[in-house]
Amino acid sequence: MALGDILIEVAGVAKHFGEGETRVDALRSVDLTVHAGEVIAMLGPSGSGKTTLLNIIGCILAPSEGRVVLDGEPVFDGRWLRRDLRRLRLDKIGFIFQAHNLLPFLTAQENVSVVLDLAGWPADDGRARARELLDYLEVGHRATVKPALLSGGEAQRVAIARALANRPRIILADEPTAALDGARAGLVMDLLRKLALEQEACIVTVTHDEKIFDRFDRLVHLRDGRLANA
């Protein structure tokens, strides 16, 4: 597979919590590069630093040291280089959660278009884009339904639509298939791969789900805060 642009570049990133005797090193000098079109999985036991690394790439957690470049833009180098990290997330990053985290008071379509609304899209364009994504993900017929009435698979597809709505180039997924059976988990990963290729995006997934390991381009193992192999 021909590699595209570098979308994630993490260099020498370390993260520790606490100081002195209570200090815990969650990440130790991690280097990671992810290209456009790549779908990678971060694996490792509990406490190995997977979620910490995902949060750092998602600009939710500041590293203790190191450098982070997202989509060609340096965002951290000893300190955050941008003040509006939420805007950065809105424009560049899509999140897919294990528990969907759809807003319960919005319909499926509104859950997708809310991202576009926040990004400043005209309301009609936002609705059209949301509908287009939901149709693409084969949940268009559930567009006016609230999340409480969606099945697990439908809710997950709406969550994927929301993550992709603003055409981000970096998609971070935390256990996206944990609530799905094997067949459906494979379908979701295939779908994510297809969308990643179409949007020239990359997908970084934290997962323990062995059933889908063969769906990734790369498996990144983390152990005691270090990359074991890539």
Binding site: G58, R86, R87, R89, N101, V114, L118
Partner: peptide, 16 residues
């Protein structure tokens, strides 16, 4: 609070 955390994560500004 969980919904607010989600909104923050997907990029909603404080004013929202």
């Amino acid at each position: 609070l969980k919904q607010i955390a989600t909104l923050k994560l997907i990029g909603a500004p404080d004013r929202t």
